[in-house]
Simulated scan of single mutants.
Amino acid sequence: MSFLTIFRSIAFLEGLSYLLLLFIAVPIKYSMGNESYVKMLGMPHGFLFIGYVVVAFLIKSDYKWTNKEFLFVLAASIIPFGTFYIDKKYLK
């Protein structure tokens, strides 16, 4: 399995977990006072985020990303739907 395949998988899962946190878990926490979804999704999302950053560093030279492109790839992980955009624009 290549680092690209791993990165694309992590990017998808990281993006999905971020959306679930932002649009489902956090609203439930503040509207119903139920923190269980945030606790359930928070740790896996954190591990996926770290994995996204680490593997991005590993494939940076393979894709010959400039520093600006690399920072954009990293910044996409904190923007909703950002990792999906990176997959479509930079990884296909």
Rank of each mutant, 00 (worst) to 15 (best):
S9D: 10
G15E: 09
F47E: 03
S2N: 14
V26M: 14
G46D: 00
R8G: 06
F81V: 08
K92D: 05
I78T: 11
L13Q: 08
L41I: 10
I6N: 09
M32T: 10
G82E: 01
V26Q: 10
I24W: 12
R8Q: 15
W65K: 02
E69H: 04
F57R: 03
Y85M: 04
I24N: 04
K88S: 05
T83E: 02
V26R: 05
Y85E: 04
E14S: 11
I86R: 00
L48E: 07
I79Q: 01
V55D: 04
L13A: 15
S36T: 15
K68Y: 11
L4T: 13
I59F: 09
L41W: 03
K39H: 10
L19R: 09
L20A: 13
I28F: 14
E69F: 01
G46S: 00
G33M: 12
D62H: 08
I78Y: 05
A25G: 11
S77Q: 03
E14F: 13
F7R: 08
V38P: 06
L21K: 08
Y18L: 13
Y37C: 11
A76M: 12
I59N: 04
F47N: 00
A75G: 08
S9W: 14
A25M: 10
L48Y: 09
L20N: 09
F81L: 10
L13K: 09
D62Y: 06
I59C: 04
S2C: 03
G82D: 00
N67K: 12
L21T: 08
G82W: 00
T83K: 00
G82L: 01
L19F: 14
F12H: 10
Y37A: 15
K88C: 00
T5R: 14
L19C: 12
V54G: 02
T66R: 04
T5V: 15
S17N: 07
I28K: 13
M43N: 09
F57S: 01
V26W: 09
Y85R: 02
Y52G: 00
M40F: 15
F12D: 05
L71Y: 12
I28E: 15
V73F: 11
I50R: 02
G82K: 00
K89P: 01
K60S: 12
S9E: 09
K92H: 05
F3W: 14
Y52V: 01
I24S: 06
G42L: 01
V54Y: 08
I28Y: 12
D62S: 09
Y30M: 08
G46E: 01
T66W: 09
L19Y: 13
S77Y: 04
F7Q: 15
Y18E: 08
N34P: 08
L91R: 07
P44F: 05
A56Q: 06
S2L: 06
M32K: 14
V26D: 04
N67Y: 11
N34S: 14
A75H: 05
S31V: 11
F81P: 00
L20M: 13
G51V: 09
T83I: 01
D87C: 03
I79P: 00
P80I: 07
D62L: 06
K88E: 08
K29G: 06
T5A: 15
M40N: 12
S77E: 03
S9H: 11
T66S: 15
W65S: 03
G82M: 01
M43R: 06
V26G: 02
M40C: 10
K60Y: 10
